[in-house]
Structures are given as C-alpha cells and as structure tokens.
C-alpha cells in the first residue's frame, strides 16, 4: 500500500486518504462559453505525467495538494492550499 505524506499528519498509508481528483481551474461561469464549461465539467485528462491532485486526510479532515508523477506513481511533494 502506498504511503502518502499529509502536510499536517505526516506519512500515512493511502487508505487513510480520499482522492479528490486533479486540481483544475474553474472557468468563470458568467463569461465562458457552453463548450468551455462542459469541457471543465466533464472532461478529464488521462495523459500520464506530473499532475497536481486534491487529497483528503480523512481522520483529520485535511485537504491538501499532491504533485504526483502518474507514470512512476511517485508523489513529488504535498502542500496545503494557501
């Protein structure tokens, strides 16, 4: 089982976490086109590479970011939202 390092609680088995998907900027719903909005809502990039993801430490209720190389399945760093 993989180990993920929560910025607050330290290294823990991944079973203590919930995955929150890739971090993606939300377009401005008031100005973007329907197509841009639909792309944001429905499309996810499956391209392997380095991604920034949301992760949640369940027991402490901590959301944080993880930069992860999905090719090597290696977590490069984790940090808290500003």
């Amino acid at each position: 089982m993989k180990i993920l390092t929560c910025p607050v609680n330290g290294p823990r088995p991944v079973s203590e976490f919930a995955y929150g998907g890739e971090v993606r900027p939300m377009p401005d719903g008031a100005t973007c086109t329907d197509r841009e909005w639909a792309d944001y809502v429905f499309n996810r990039s499956g391209v392997p590479g380095v991604k920034i993801e949301w992760w949640y430490h369940i027991a402490s209720g901590t959301w944080f970011y993880a930069e992860r190389d999905t090719v090597a399945d290696r977590v490069i760093r984790t940090w808290l939202p500003a």
């Binding site: 919930a18 929150g20 949301w54 949640y56 209720g61 959301w63 939202p81």
Partner: peptide, 20 residues
C-alpha cells in the same frame, strides 16, 4: 457533503467555520 464543503472552504477562503 462535509468533505466537499471543507474543500470549497479551502478554496474560497470565506470567514466561516464548518463543524460536522
């Protein structure tokens, strides 16, 4: 729901506290 509210709160930085 609690989890998602915490996530929104982490992004919006509104002055609120959510307690489950």
């Amino acid at each position: 729901v609690y989890r998602e509210l915490q996530r929104w709160n982490a992004q919006w930085n509104l002055e609120v506290g959510i307690v489950n």
